[in-house]
Design a protein around this nucleic acid. Structure first.
Lengths: 361, 361
DNA sequence: TCCCAAGATGTTTGCGTAAACATAGCGAGA
DNA sequence: TCTCGCTATGTTTACGCAAACATCTTGGGA
């Protein structure tokens, strides 16, 4: 193994002693500044600045001399100084709840990727509890942190409290919201997904489709439920009562236990894969075969869903696209391109696996 | 619904017009500065600074006047200026691969929480591909971003390439590494977990335990595998050949298919829950009952694992503790407390559910 | 040959903050 | 009463960078 050479060299050469004796809390020696480079290269600091940025109007020879000096000294521009000068922070804040769903994590991932490609860093602003106080304080933190824009990955109505104020001029994008919330929105086309799921079950011949809903506070959940209901009604079917879970497998399990006791129940559309998983466990325990006795459809298409037992038919969300489009929208707002899309919807896709089939008989 | 009032008001009052006509790329009007507050309160800017920070030596009356002015103007200190002045950024970088495992996400979550409690923000530095080039450029980005410390959530040996240089004086903590990598390490006690899992199966009466290993590039995977092997050997058993997956359910499925064809195979220890899930699917397909014919143990204890079919016996990792302890370690380093723990191990826990039982007969 | 334009480079300045230093005010002890 | 010394507050300065402006070259055209 060579890990003792590479990584070590950086750290080990000056070893622990590298840690400057810590004059108080101040971090070790500041790196070389633009001035140091200038001195080393025998030019003015402004020339270094020019090389560091625009590269306009600098003679090749001078430029190389500066570049050499930079490399020599290991110069990196100081973002704080840049931010102070320019008023821009090249940073995007992401406000989200801790212990977010897996889907949100994937969205976050895409956001981080897209942002870093655009030269922005991503700052996390975790929220611990959906109480007003907490959300509000997150904003304070945020404002202090001076980001150039924010992506809000959670139910936007939690923002609708008096004491919450997003700085007026701070560009923002909301995921999982209603259009008309006041901020541009990017989200999976929940309605389409729910329709696809419901229709798939109806097309297989099921006369009724039960729904395991997400928490009523979530717009995604609301949209999925409404669309499921509408699809049933369009087919002339009265929608049965909805039981709401909290996205967790445990809640899906409880509701599955409930639903599974009804012998007439042959088809379930769960608002996410995890609740579908919980419901399937309940059905197994009740001795109802999937898909022979009961068909189950989820929503999300987790990587794991292929390997659930049976492999889960579900609606695939393109989390990556959601993240990417949020950043695109945000960047447009920051660039001042006024007419920004109010609502962007990302299409979904039905993925048929083994958890659905025609009803018995 | 009231979401049309709350959130809107902030944004709607000046409506789209709020967006400053975008004089180039510069973000709208800068907020009020310390000087503005000073003027409003009729004091010097230094007094405002004092109120904003230490609060020492300021008369109650004056302090209140300043506080009022701050509130009035909506003053927030400018972090860039602070950072420039102090040389500290109050920010911690997290270097991680995109689409990391669920466990890493939970760790990240804990990191974000702990960091924000300590007054630090968290900046994400996503890595897209484990090629040298990419990793290296991440460091450049990082250095530019000027964080006060970094947590590295991935196999540390990927850092062992010549062209990678973590700034010498930048405090760092590595998760999923070997001790002696040159950086302090915080991780789950992989060896203990693997021993617990293997021993559990042996205690049930299994004569042999097969292992689905993680990718050899992962230290976690290595440690789990070594410990599993040692546990078998301590029991006088020759360890069978290990098949390595890549943590995904799909790879677990493939290996499960392989393993399941061996009629003598009665016990599997998978290096994570997802591969265990895949393996269980394979066993189902092969008609081998779990746990009657084959027992399966995972590693991680995902939230979903309770609802796998059958509910999975697994090793619980305390991701939250790992995240929290990383930050604690990092903060200590930043404070200059020299003797920082080289390696912190977080204990694991065996969670027995329904996927394990005594072998048939 | 001289002058001027255009490019290359240097100098000044200010972004917002907080340390370092300076001053004013006030009470206690000599 | 005067002075010392402490507290409350003000003034100066520098952090690192990059616009804005100033200056110095150089070469081409009249």
């Amino acid at each position: 193994m060579q890990e003792d050479s590479g990584a070590r060299t950086a750290q080990a050469a000056p070893s622990n002693g590298a840690r400057k004796p810590a004059s108080g809390t101040s971090r070790a020696s500041r790196g070389p500044s633009i001035g140091d480079v200038a001195k080393a290269a025998g030019v003015s600091s402004q020339t270094v600045s020019r090389v560091s940025n625009g590269l306009t109007n600098v003679e090749e020879k001078t430029k190389n001399r500066v570049l050499d000096a930079m490399k020599q000294l290991g110069y990196r521009p100081n973002r704080a100084a840049r931010a102070l000068k320019s008023g821009q922070f090249k940073s995007i804040g992401v406000i989200m709840f801790t212990l977010s769903s897996f889907g949100n994590m994937r969205t976050l991932d895409a956001i981080a990727t897209a942002a870093s490609q655009a030269g922005y860093s991503v700052t996390l602003i975790p929220l611990h509890d959906p109480t007003t106080g907490t959300v509000s304080s997150a904003y304070h933190r945020l404002r202090e942190q001076e980001v150039d824009g924010v992506v809000i990955i959670f139910e936007a109505h939690l923002l609708d409290r008096a004491d919450i104020t997003l700085p007026e001029d701070l560009p923002a994008v909301v995921i999982d919201s209603n259009p008309g919330s006041g901020y541009p929105m990017v989200d999976t086309d929940q309605a389409e997904g729910a329709r696809l799921a419901t229709k798939h079950l109806l097309d297989l011949g099921h006369r009724q489709v039960w729904h395991i809903g997400g928490p009523p506070s979530s717009f995604s959940a609301q949209h999925r439920e409404e669309s499921w209901k509408r699809t049933l009604e369009d087919a002339g079917i009265d929608a049965p009562l909805v039981l709401h879970g909290d996205w967790s497998t445990e809640s899906g399990y409880q509701i599955g236990l409930e639903l599974g006791r009804n012998p007439e129940m042959t088809a379930i559309f769960a608002a996410n894969d995890q609740m579908a998983l919980g419901a399937m466990r309940a059905l197994h325990e009740l001795g109802r075969a999937i898909p022979e006795d009961v068909s189950v459809v989820g929503f999300d298409d987790l990587e794991e869903s292929t390997s659930f037992w049976p492999p889960l038919t579900t609606i695939r969300q393109d989390f990556h696209a959601v993240g990417r489009l949020s950043i695109e929208n945000l960047l447009q707002q920051m660039a001042g391109n006024s007419p920004v899309n109010e609502a962007t919807k990302v299409p979904t896709q039905l993925v048929v696996r083994k958890s659905t089939a025609e009803p018995a008989k």
